[in-house]
Design a protein around this nucleic acid. Structure first.
Lengths: 201, 201
DNA sequence: AGTAACTCGAACAATGCTGTTCGACAAGGT
DNA sequence: ACCTTGTCGAACAGCATTGTTCGAGTTACT
């Protein structure tokens, strides 16, 4: 695994270029070859193999970077205060991040073992879970369905929205509100009224 | 494209065996080779190419058959009466069908162009859409979100549930109720109370 | 300026796949 | 009984991929 320390300056530059190019290529074609990626990075194939022992390791690195960035972006979201408004804020920040890395996820699924992907998703997931539990404690989110399931619903709905946008059936501007409205309704305890979503932005 | 008419008896048998074997293999490995499939079908590779001009054509045929069967199973569901109860019935019949063909969908995504997959999904989708619109007209489903989006939510939540079951995080027995409760809530108009789901044995 | 780290292209071996061709053979239909 | 239709195995060509090796050339650190 390539580290950022101890390496020469141009080596670090190349690693970054390779990672960028790989991300770009894999988004276009989940089965992009090492040759394509190296060429897109403006680097020889041999150089690439000098930094990443195998194609799998490269894909892993790209995916790790994407997930880490997404996690950082989500960490910046304020989840205090009213849980429902916090959910709205989380969605507003999440969906774009996920939309960008959605094709990357497909590429990862083509080459990485499922448990690896699951493990890398755990951190971002925890954030959703903690918010869910806070909302439950406050009485605004439902208790009658498993927490695991509700977290999965969050995940799958956001990804579904990304797919819909990609297919051109959902306007990007309308996405955040649609996702928020859907998730708020899905999280509402039985008997409670479904909250109205005030249009954002 | 292989037809069931005009072929000799053993040829028809072999086509069926190939289709079955292909489905089984592709579920285990979305990139299963033609050799594997032919072997699993107890048939020579040449024979397979005699019936399907290319691997792609074979995958397409397998996928078409799976979707068709799913569509038929869904057509048997009674969608009259209260839209919410009809939705529950549709979910109860849908999720198992989708769970079975979920890995097949992955295989299809690996080899078939996206528009082809979309097109084959149109028929089953229409059924959901008509139910949605009936529920809207009856005032029990929401109008404030696009119909396309709500149909997509149905699709993505059911598939998400299938994934959760596959990952062992959701008990198969609990799936139908969880999906139904989630979707009913997501479809409920803002201001209306979220319906309680009575456990279905 | 000297040295170690890095890069590059070309070429290599090793697979693994698809799709086709051949000839001999078996099975189904009438 | 006949002949069409289908089957089989082996072998072939073609292609794309991964990952490695080599030697010569460059680039960055000190």
């Amino acid at each position: 695994m390539p580290v950022t320390t101890g390496k020469r300056a141009d080596a670090q530059r190349n690693v970054a270029a390779i990672l960028d190019a790989a991300a770009a290529c894999l988004v276009r074609d989940p089965d992009a070859s090492v040759s394509d990626i190296a060429a897109a990075a403006g680097v020889g194939r041999v150089t690439l193999y000098g930094h990443f022992a195998s194609r799998t390791e490269l894909v892993d690195a790209v995916f790790v970077r994407a997930v880490t960035r997404a996690h950082e972006a989500l960490d910046a979201v304020d989840l205090t205060g009213d849980a429902r408004q916090a959910l709205a804020r989380l969605v507003a920040s999440s969906w774009q991040v996920i939309d960008e890395s959605r094709m990357l996820l497909v590429a990862a699924q083509h080459t990485l073992p499922p448990e690896r992907i699951r493990k890398l998703h755990e951190n971002p997931m925890r954030r959703v879970r903690s918010l869910l539990e806070r909302g439950r404690a406050a009485g605004v989110f439902r208790f009658d369905l498993p927490a695991d399931w509700l977290v999965a619903v969050f995940y799958t709905v956001v990804h579904g929205a990304a797919d819909e946008i990609g297919a051109g059936r959902l306007a990007a501007e309308a996405a955040a509100d649609a996702i928020t409205a859907t998730l708020l309704a899905a999280f509402t305890p039985p008997g409670d009224p479904v909250p109205q979503v005030t249009a954002t932005g």
